[in-house]
């Protein structure tokens, strides 16, 4: 991330120098703790966190931000402790690396009267955070399932690629299964592609060997969709089926914009949710706008018509 941080640092410096010299009575510091960019989704999340910090620092000169990315839960706890001890933060925006180990450190932050915003993964004790911002996992499966139910006929065959076995994956798949129930769609098989291109490629190759008639694939993630599309292409069965991925990777969104018949739609699970959390936290500090509570970002369906508003060519994801 250093490359980007350096560039961003320069950009922020310029923005600050050029920014309006508003008279300000009080300054606030917001700490942001997120996992480091180890895969596509987190890369996108880091990008959107930095972009929104840059925007907010330019808009509100009285706001100061501390961004820390951590490769494991232990480092994240250290980062948060440092922010409280040395930077005297007024608010903390945190995407917990893991729920359990971060619950009591975040609780300690809260007990010092600091505003706490928790993103995406909840803490294991309810009621610590002032604001909770997250994507909608059951909605992610349901929206995809509804599209399948509407666009396939009774007796049509589909295969499903699942992610890494987790609660999150179960919530998505259960909601998907519930949404297609009663539609007469025949789920031939479900296997784990682990949100990984290579694994998804192998699993899809095997599905194609095993089943002569597949009408659609729910790949449930855009990285898996890339592997799936390649396997279908290799088997020369592109005409036969379409694929629905998820999470809105820019390359896939681009193909939807271009009207690719194999990729009719996509379902969002936006890494930009970190921007929602940071913006709302900032808004709560600088104005009287009430922002406490829960903010669940709906999973929307991306179609060729609206794809442009979900396309971020600069984001790494």
């Amino acid at each position: 991330m250093k490359r980007r941080t350096l560039l961003k640092g320069a950009a922020i410096g310029l923005a600050l120098a050029a920014g309006p010299a508003v008279a300000q009575d009080e300054t606030y510091t917001i700490g942001v703790a997120i996992p480091s960019a180890t895969h596509g989704f987190m890369g996108g999340l880091n990008y959107h966190a930095q972009a929104s910090i840059e925007r907010l620092e330019a808009t509100y000169p009285q706001l100061d931000f501390v961004l820390a990315t951590a490769g494991d839960a232990g480092k994240m706890v250290n980062d948060i402790e440092d922010m409280v001890a040395t930077r005297d933060i007024d608010a903390l925006v945190v995407l917990p690396f893991e729920s359990e180990p971060l619950t009591s450190p975040v609780q300690a932050v809260k007990e010092q009267g600091i505003w706490v915003t928790v993103v995406d993964r909840g803490l294991s004790v309810p009621g610590i955070e002032d604001l909770y911002v997250a994507g909608d996992n059951p909605g992610f499966g349901r929206v995809a399932g509804e599209y399948f139910a509407e666009n396939l006929n009774e007796g049509d065959n589909i295969v499903v690629l699942r992610g890494i076995p987790t609660t999150l994956d179960n919530e998505r798949v259960d909601a998907f299964t519930a949404a297609i129930e009663g539609s007469g769609i025949n789920v031939l098989d479900m296997q784990h592609g682990n949100w990984n291109r290579d694994d998804a490629f192998n699993v899809m190759q095997d599905f194609l060997s095993k089943y002569d008639d597949i009408d659609a694939v729910w790949a449930a993630d855009d990285d898996m969709a890339v592997g799936v599309l390649e396997a279908i292409d290799q088997a020369g069965r592109s005409e036969e089926m379409w694929v629905v991925g998820g999470a809105g990777m820019k390359q896939i969104i681009k193909r939807i914009m271009d009207g690719d018949p194999m990729l009719p739609v996509n379902v969002t699970y936006p890494p930009a949710q970190i921007a929602t959390a940071i913006e709302l936290t900032a808004l709560g500090l600088v104005s009287a706008t009430p922002v406490s509570g829960r903010f669940i970002i709906g999973s929307q369906i991306i179609t060729p018509e609206n794809a442009e508003s979900f396309y971020f060519p600069d984001s790494p994801f």
């Binding site: 250093k2 180890t38 880091n46 990008y47």
Partner: peptide, 11 residues
């Protein structure tokens, strides 16, 4: 590799 890809994917 993650650094070269800026956290995303090199295509």
């Amino acid at each position: 590799t993650t650094w070269l890809a800026d956290g995303g994917t090199l295509s």
